[in-house]
C-alpha cells in the first residue's frame, strides 16, 4: 500500500460476495495493481472501511497464490460488520493494508503441522493451509482440528474433503452443540487430539480462535510436548489505526497490529491469561 499516508483507505470494487454461514460472509475485493507484487502473507489483515460507518480489522482468508483477489471472511457482529454485510458485488469498500505478522509457513518446513481453529478463527488460517498444501511434500503430517458452536457455524466445509483426499490432511471437526442429524464429533476442540497422528517433538502448531479456546489448546499442546516457541497464536484487541499509533491494541509490551496478530506463544506467554491485560 501507499506508505506515504497509511491512514488513507483505498476504494476497491467488490467482485463477489460469498455467503458462508447464517452470519458469516466473504467479501472478495480486487487489490490495486501495484499491490499485486507485494501480495499478502498468510495471517495478515486489512482494515475495511464501510462508507460512513467505520473501519474494522479483517483477516485475509483467501489464497496467497492468487493475490489478484483478496478474500475477507467477516462475521456480522457489530455496527461496521453489519454495514459490510449490506455490500454487494459492484459496491465499493475502503481498504488499508495488508498489515501485521504472518504464520510461519516456510519456516516450518520439515515439521508436522498442527492447526487448531475455533469458529471464525479458521478464516485467518486458511491462507496458511493453502500455502502449506502448495508445497505439501515439504511437511510431514498436517492436522486440522476445527471446533465451532453448531453445524451451521462451520466454515469452508466443502474444502475439507479435498484437503483430506488430495493432500492427506487429518481434518477433524467438532461442534459444541448438536442435533440428531449431526453424525460428527461433539465436544470441545481439544477432545479431537486422541487418535491424531503427529510427532510433538517435530511439530509446529498454529492456533486461532476465541482466547479462552486458545488457552485450553495451548495447555493441551504443551501437555503433548510441543514447545512454547513452536506454538503460534493470533491475538485480538480493539484496533483503530493498524500501524502502532493509536495505542488501542496493546497487549503487554506488544502492539497486536504491528508485532502480531500472529505471535510465537513464547513471546506473549508471560502476559497470556492475565485478567484484563
Amino acid at each position: 500500500m501507499d506508505t506515504s499516508n497509511p491512514m488513507i483507505p483505498q476504494p476497491r470494487k467488490i467482485k463477489r460476495v460469498i455467503r458462508e454461514t447464517h452470519d458469516t460472509f466473504t467479501l472478495c475485493v480486487e487489490p490495486e495493481t501495484v499491490e499485486l507484487e507485494k501480495s499478502f502473507k498468510p495471517g495478515q489483515f486489512n482494515m475495511l472501511y464501510a462508507f460512513g460507518a467505520g473501519e474494522v480489522p479483517i483477516s485475509i482468508s483467501g489464497d496467497p497464490r492468487k493475490p489478484d483477489v483478496w478474500h475477507h471472511t467477516i462475521r456480522d457482529m457489530g455496527v461496521v460488520t453489519r454495514a459490510l454485510t449490506n455490500l454487494k458485488a459492484g459496491d465499493t469498500v475502503g481498504v488499508r493494508g495488508p498489515f501485521g505478522s504472518a504464520w510461519p509457513v516456510q519456516e516450518s518446513r520439515g515439521n508436522d503441522i498442527v492447526i487448531i481453529a475455533g469458529g471464525i478463527g479458521l478464516a485467518p488460517l486458511r491462507p496458511a493451509i493453502y500455502a502449506l498444501l502448495e508445497e505439501r511434500d515439504q511437511f510431514g503430517e498436517i492436522v486440522l482440528l476445527y471446533g465451532a458452536r453448531t453445524q451451521e457455524d462451520l466454515l469452508f466445509t466443502k474444502e475439507f474433503e479435498r484437503w483430506r483426499g488430495k493432500y492427506g490432511v487429518q481434518v477433524r471437526v467438532t461442534i459444541d452443540s448438536a442435533g440428531r442429524d449431526w453424525k460428527g464429533n461433539v465436544g470441545v476442540v481439544t477432545t479431537l487430539f486422541p487418535g491424531v497422528r503427529f510427532d510433538p517433538a517435530n511439530s509446529v502448531a498454529m492456533i486461532c480462535g476465541p482466547e479462552v479456546m486458545m488457552r485450553f489448546a495451548v495447555l493441551e499442546l504443551k501437555n503433548l510436548g510441543i514447545e512454547d516457541r513452536n506454538i503460534y497464536v493470533t491475538m485480538e484487541r480493539n484496533m483503530k489505526c493498524a500501524i502502532g499509533f493509536c495505542g488501542h491494541c496493546q497487549f503487554g509490551p506488544s502492539f497486536i497490529c504491528k508485532d502480531g496478530p500472529v505471535f510465537p506463544f513464547s513471546e506473549i506467554s508471560p502476559f497470556f491469561g492475565i485478567r484484563e491485560i
Binding site: T174, A178, G179, R180, W182, V186, G187, T191, P194, G195
Partner: peptide, 24 residues
C-alpha cells in the same frame, strides 16, 4: 466407531452433549 451422549428434554429434540471415538 463413535458413540454420542445425549439428553432428551421433554418437548425438544435430543441434544448431543459429547461424542466418544476410538480409544476413549
Amino acid at each position: 466407531g463413535k458413540v454420542v451422549i445425549e439428553s432428551c428434554p421433554p418437548g425438544r429434540k435430543p441434544i448431543s452433549l459429547q461424542t466418544f471415538s476410538d480409544g476413549e
